[in-house]
Amino acid sequence: MENTFEPKVVAFCCHYCAYSAADLAGSMRLEYSPNVRIVRLMCTGKVDTLHLLKAFEDGADAVFVAGCEEGSCHFQEGNLFARQKVIEAKKLLKEVGIEPERLEMYHIAASNSVLFAKAADEMTERAHKLGPNPLKTQGKSI
């Protein structure tokens, strides 16, 4: 079971930066974790705490939000709002007993394909270490 576990990682990416970085990573043939499913947003400011919780509720093993670098948000400060939502969601996850480390915020410039690949690998690695989303394992055992 342990060896066959392939985590599902959801990445909420900003169209203007992290999504472009992911695209660039592809063009550059940079290798990064195939476990990542990207949700493209016009701005990470659109991410709500509720979306983050729902992703876990629906079975994601790790989630990350990738917005622009500080000061570079296309919509001024959407990325900063996203960061606060991530902090809030981490708190809520901890309350219910899900490791908050399964969720993270990244700031990735459009040109920084390397950082995107790193974030994808890092979150996949974390999910591997932590094991499957406890909601899946606990749910089955009952």
Binding site: L53, L92, G97, L135, I142
Partner: peptide, 21 residues
């Protein structure tokens, strides 16, 4: 409405983890 969604999601996850329905 939003806070209802958040709390309900938390409660659903918690009950699942606690093994209660």
């Amino acid at each position: 409405e939003k806070e209802v969604g958040l709390l309900a999601a938390e409660l659903r996850m918690k009950s699942q983890l606690a093994g209660v329905t």
